[in-house]
């Protein structure tokens, strides 16, 4: 009985634990562990590492904890950009509230206590495919700052995020930078769940208006979060009726619609249709002058 109890409250595999103090040390630790075939992995909040590791869906023999990196904890305005560290917890982002759309979206992830451990980078890079914290960054054309064997790289999110953040082996996300002009843009973020007020979404939608154009990013509809130029093109075609715009947008969904225990694909489509109506109404988008 004692052994069974012990197994239930610790991970079922042994691993080396490192907490590097510099960007370079983190990369070096990864490379060394990689050469030793230890299947190294980076984490920061470690919530997914614990919950998936507990059920053998994550495995490593070398865990590199990034939360000691001061570069990953900054909240700073610099040359017209807001720079957020990837190791900030969602609670820290909410408390600072420097990017209201990001606050609004991340406040719906998990629950309040868990958000004190989940990090921005961890949510974006996680295996669990909702990755809702990326939605505001997709809408705001953010820059992703990564560290790896080749040093520091800065790339536009649209180059490096396709369904997931396309990190090279040994790379990790350390910061995201967003132009200040996006921080005050009109926005809305809505999360619809099957039931209750915490937990995974049926669909989460974030929307923002920039230069009179509506931008939308969606999680929970497909097996990946996305922002679709085709969908936005349809929604911004003011030559046709609002109903037709939404109908055309629904025809441009970039992948198979999820059909699972949270909701059938037909139901998700129904929910999305209504969400798009709600978004346009809330942002007063497409209303005739």
């Amino acid at each position: 009985m004692e052994d069974k109890g012990r197994e239930s409250v610790m991970l079922p595999f042994g691993f080396d634990y490192y907490r590097p103090k510099s960007l370079e040390e983190a990369v070096t630790r990864f490379q060394q562990a990689d050469q030793s075939l230890k299947e190294p992995m980076y984490f920061s909040g470690a919530t997914e590492f614990l919950t998936l590791g507990r059920i053998n869906q994550v495995y490593t023999e070398a865990a590199i904890d990034l939360k000691g990196l001061s570069e990953g904890k900054i909240i700073q305005f610099d040359q017209g950009y807001l720079v957020l560290g990837a190791n900030l917890t969602l609670t820290e982002i909410e408390e600072a509230n420097v990017f209201p759309l990001l606050t609004s979206t991340s406040k719906e992830i998990a629950d309040h206590t868990a958000r004190g451990k989940i990090t921005l980078g961890g949510n974006i890079c996680g295996q669990i495919f909702y990755r809702e914290a990326v939605l505001p960054l997709l809408l705001a054309d953010s820059q992703m700052v990564m560290v790896g064997p080749e040093g520091i790289k800065v790339k536009p999110i649209h180059e490096i995020f396709h369904e997931r953040l396309l990190l090279q082996r040994g790379e990790y996300l350390i910061q995201v930078a967003t132009e200040s002009r996006y921080l005050d843009a009109p926005f809305i973020s809505i999360k619809r769940r099957q039931q209750w007020e915490t937990g995974y979404p049926l669909i989460t939608i974030a929307a923002l208006i920039m230069e009179n154009k509506l931008r939308v990013a969606i999680s929970g509809l497909c097996t990946f979060p996305f922002r679709s130029k085709e969908m936005e093109g349809a929604l911004n075609n003011l030559e046709v009726s609002p109903q037709e715009r939404i109908h055309n947008a629904l025809a441009s969904i970039p992948g198979p619609i999820l059909h699972d225990v949270e909701g059938s694909s037909d139901y998700r489509l129904f929910v999305l249709e209504n969400l798009l109506v709600d978004v346009c109404e809330a942002l007063k988008f497409g209303e005739r002058e």
Binding site: S8, V9, Y17, R19, A46, T47, L50, T51, R54, D65, K67, T91, A110, D111, H112, T113, A114, G116, K117
Partner: peptide, 30 residues
């Protein structure tokens, strides 16, 4: 208390640096 051990139920909540923390979602080394 150990409950879900998955960060869902909150039975294991303690305080870390003044904030609530689900102690099943934190390793001792952290």
């Amino acid at each position: 208390k150990p409950g879900c051990l998955n960060g869902d139920c909150g039975a294991c909540t303690i305080q870390v640096d003044g904030w609530p923390m689900k102690s099943c979602l934190m390793m001792a080394v952290e």
